[in-house]
């Protein structure tokens, strides 16, 4: 008799971290407002996934449905292979949750609250270590209502990870943080990833998504309008640009001919040249050899990659921070 199969199809161990299909959520009964409108999203185990989008895009609603706070109006949601509402009791110990704000008794002290949260879990992270890592040592005895906004954010983050979850949901983890606290948060997210924790975070900061995420889902109007690695999104979504400087008034026609058809060449200001198209090693070589043929020493040659913000603008015509 062969050994038994490693589990049924619903074995949570093999399921994606998050699997959302056709999710719809409306609020209000009289004139319902559609917050999420047919959203599909798959989040693989391990790694950091950023849900990137402007305020009101449906990021928080999606995350809160995954956390089991709301029932979908349509569609299916599986988190670690479980139904967040029906299987809540089994799911809750395995996930960590950081709400966008609040979540702590106003009279509780920072360290007291973290210790309490730890005590609800079987095998929590060492509390003093976490306090030190997030720079909460100086305010451990301070009650929540007297903490600064940044300290409150970091305490909420600590509470989300103290139970050693497999998957954490961080809803705008760095909103309102100063640069130092922001980097402490980023470092912690990177360490979670290295230690094998799956992280889903929402943000409206492009740099945060670019810095942290293995996978970015751009959300607008309650749908995922693009998903991929930051590189894929930047490459696929928009043209790229190469700039160089040289002596003014070069004849660009021959360069234009040497480049692929979809390229353009301009001299926006005297001596400053701009080439658009698919910027790859081949293009760089073409430009360099053209410069050599024309006896030009290209000065300050630079590749300009499009940022996620450009991609977002191209896709939606909207500012990300809107």
């Amino acid at each position: 008799m062969p050994s038994t199969s490693p589990g049924s199809p619903r074995t949570p161990g093999s399921a994606p971290a998050v699997e959302v299909t056709g999710l719809v959520k409306r609020y209000g009964s009289r004139s319902p407002k559609t917050a999420v409108d047919g959203l599909d999203l798959t989040v693989a185990r391990g790694g950091v996934t950023a849900l990137l989008g402007p305020n009101g895009a449906g990021k928080t609603t999606t995350v809160e449905i995954c956390e089991g706070y709301r029932r979908p109006d349509a569609g299916t949601v599986r988190v670690l292979g479980l139904d967040p509402v029906a299987d809540a009791a089994r799911l809750r110990p395995r996930i960590g949750v950081m709400l966008q704000s609040g979540g702590v008794y106003s009279g509780a002290r920072a360290e007291e609250m973290l210790r309490h949260t730890a005590s609800l879990h079987a095998d929590p992270v060492d509390v003093p270590l976490l306090i030190e890592r997030l720079g909460l040592g100086s305010c451990g005895r301070t009650t929540y209502r007297r903490l600064s906004g940044g300290q409150q954010q970091r305490l909420a983050l600590a509470m989300a990870v103290v139970g050693r979850p497999e998957l954490v949901f961080l809803d705008e983890p760095t909103a309102g943080l100063d640069p130092q606290a922001r980097h402490a948060t980023w470092d912690l997210v990177r360490e979670l990833r290295t230690d094998g924790v799956s992280v889903v975070l929402t943000t409206h900061f492009m740099d945060e998504a670019e810095q942290l995420a293995d996978d970015v889902a751009i959300i607008d109007g309650g749908r995922v309008i693009a998903q991929g690695t930051p590189d894929e999104l930047c490459r696929g979504g928009a043209e790229n640009t190469l700039r160089f400087t040289g002596r003014p008034g070069l004849d660009l026609a021959s360069l234009r001919k040497a480049l692929p058809e979809d390229s353009t060449t301009t001299e926006p200001s005297p001596g400053s040249y701009r080439v658009t198209g698919t910027v790859d090693p081949q293009m760089l070589a073409t430009v360099a050899s053209w410069c050599a043929q024309n006896g030009v020493l290209p000065d300050a040659i630079a590749v300009e990659r499009h940022t996620l913000e450009d991609v977002f603008l191209d896709l939606t015509g909207k500012e990300l921070r809107g």
Partner: peptide
């Protein structure tokens, strides 16, 4: 490098 500080070991008390 992985420190293992956050290696998942979830569970309710």
């Amino acid at each position: 490098t992985a420190t293992g500080t956050f290696t998942p070991r979830p569970g309710a008390a």
